[in-house]
Each structure stands twice: as structure tokens, then as C-alpha cells.
Amino acid sequence: MENLLNIFIKSIFVENMVFAFFLGMCSFLAVSKSVKTAMGLGIAVIFVMVITVPVNFILEKYLLKKGALIWLGEGFADVDLSFLTFMIFIAFIAAMTQLVEMIIEKFSPALYNSLGIFLPLIAVNCAILGASLFMQEREYENVLEATVFGLGSGIGWLLAIVGIAAIREKLKYSNVPDPLKGLGITFILTGLMAIAFMGFMGISL
């Protein structure tokens, strides 16, 4: 239990997808103009992550790893499909995104319209593939750990995008030098937020 809590806290604050690894920056910068839209995208990302990370964990364990196909019979003990990792992971993520897109379109057309092009782009949101690849690299032990990691990373991403969106809403009223307006100041703000998040470094339970 403690271990799970540790992974959870770590993935939200210490190893925050945006501030520590810069993952999901494209949509982070483009959709962070209003808090409401940012919130919607953040929730969609959490949803996709919580599903894709554990499923990719299972795929990795029973399909891709060296010797993973042993459940098919002795003859498969030497098969190593790990070079297909990227392909399998991304295919599953793309399929999942399609599903989320259809769900949001049905239940919340307003959100669907405001997210626009960035909804299908969740498929190429680096944070999501990144979470799966980190899950693989850090060798989590079971599905539960992988799920908690997915949830934590998603929440961390939501926190980051809602935070920057709130700041940008206020920023409209401030006097920024012209060439720095928009993109430039957002980058610097993100940098400053990342410095703040570094305060969490080293926390473990």
C-alpha cells in the first residue's frame, strides 16, 4: 500500500510529466488559454492514461517481452517481440483515443467543439505514449502499480495545464513586451512553474 502511495505522489509531483520531462507540451501550450478547456482536456488525458498504461503493461508482459509468449507453449520461449513495442503501444493508444473522442462527442458536444483538433491529437500526445514507455522502462511489478502510475501521471498533467491556464487568463491584463507575448512568456512561465515543482524533489514515503 505504501509503495502504491509512493508511486502516486511521485508521479504527480516529483516526476511530473510536464515539468520534469516536458511531455505533452504541444497541447499544453496550445489548449491552455482558458481554464475550462484545459480542465476538459486534462480529464480526457487522465481517462486515456488510466486505461492505456495498465493495458500496455499487460501487452508488454504477455506479448512483447522476451519469453513472454511462453503461455502459448514451450516452443515460444525464445520469441522476442520487444522491437514491436512502439507499434503495439501506439496502435492501442490511437484506438483508445478514437473511443474517447466518440464518448465526448456524444455526451458533451460543447466540450467536443472547444477541444477541436486537440482531441484526436491526444493520440500523439507525448505524455500518453511517454507514460507507457516509462512504465516499461521502470519495470513496475504488477498491473496495480501500473494503473496507479497512469492515474498519477494523468493528474499531474491536469494540474500543470490547469495551473498555466489560470495564469494565462490573468496575464491578459498585464503588460508583456511585444515580442514576448503569447508563446514566449508562456515558455518562461512554465519554466518558473517547473522551478517551483522542483521543490518536491526527493519526497518519498
Partner: peptide, 12 residues
């Protein structure tokens, strides 16, 4: 990590 963001901001 944070400095990378700030440097890109300055380049922009």
C-alpha cells in the same frame, strides 16, 4: 529541466 524552457522562451 526548467532552464530548457526558459532558454527556449528567450530564443523566441
Amino acid at each position: 529541466p526548467p532552464m530548457a524552457l526558459i532558454i527556449v522562451g528567450l530564443i523566441i
